[in-house]
Amino acid sequence: MKKSFFIQLMQWIGALLLAMAIVSVVGFFYYRPVGWLERDKNATSAVWEPNTVVVNFLEGGGITRVDSHGYTNPWGKELDDELVLCIGASYVQSKEVMENKKYTSLLNEMLTSEDKLKVYNLSRDAYLYPEIVAGFSAAIQEFPQTKVAVIDISNTDYSLEELKKALIQREYSPEQTGDKLYAELPAIEKIKIKVKDYFPITSILKHQMSQMQGEGVDVTGATKRTQEVSEAQYGEALDATMKQMREAFSGEIIILYHPSVLLNEDGSMSLNQPKYRDVFEEMCQQNGIVFADMGDDFLQAYEERKEVPYGFQNVTIGEGHLNKYGHKMIAKRLYDLIEKE
């Protein structure tokens, strides 16, 4: 080497940092999740950094706005006096499709011609049925104008332990909404969040690491049951969770169930039905809850138009999150159900 070791070393460090900054710019158009605020009260255990934009082209492609509550809703729209509250996990959050393609937006358009938000999206990654039950009462307290609560699930099988834990209700605190949480954050936490916001390369690398470790593969929320239980036992545990929700809310509750699908070698598509699906439906009927199974809609769309509800052109078809077809089918089904009532 002609130059001194020190100069070479400094140049390498400089090049590494500058290159990182350059590649980070690409990250703004590829994957840019924003800060994540943990909390011990209210419906979900965490919310996004309020009034921000999430970019996600890892799976599908979506640019999603986060409102002042920390949930994925458009900005600046006044809430309607009567809300359809859609609660669920990443399927409801829908970071994989553009804002105007997700079913909460489509349903909103169908239900109101005013520039108001009638369908509210209350979701968080991996917010599964047991956690939804635990936070249900807090959700209703945060949005008391709710007329219809839609609970989005893609699996009906959970462990008895999870269902039992779901009965412990989370408290509601008006001090723990997204904007208030962010305002109270210590300076160091705010800096950490800003680094995440402005250096998306850190999030991309984190995502790569989690993929390497095999995380984030299953988005259905399928949990490992520690032991097989009888349908009666399972039904009893489920019944308790549904009664809990019924106590908290007298309006209409719709459990929207969209099973995962399987593209078979012979060219057909079938549904992956979990073991306790029928028990789930039966318990819903017993508690006056509408159980909307999207399975037949999915199969019909495949037979007629070869449309698959899950998957994207930048990953695989038939796996992962809901795509524009899936969202459209769900929006239509929910509209029919709500209109019927």
Partner: peptide
């Protein structure tokens, strides 16, 4: 790689690999 520009291009490729490598 004696020059800074060479190092920069090299480092950009390294970061691109780290960010866009398929790890499945």
């Amino acid at each position: 790689l004696e020059k800074f520009s060479g190092k920069l291009v090299f480092c950009i490729i390294v970061w691109l690999i780290l960010c866009f490598a398929y790890v499945g």
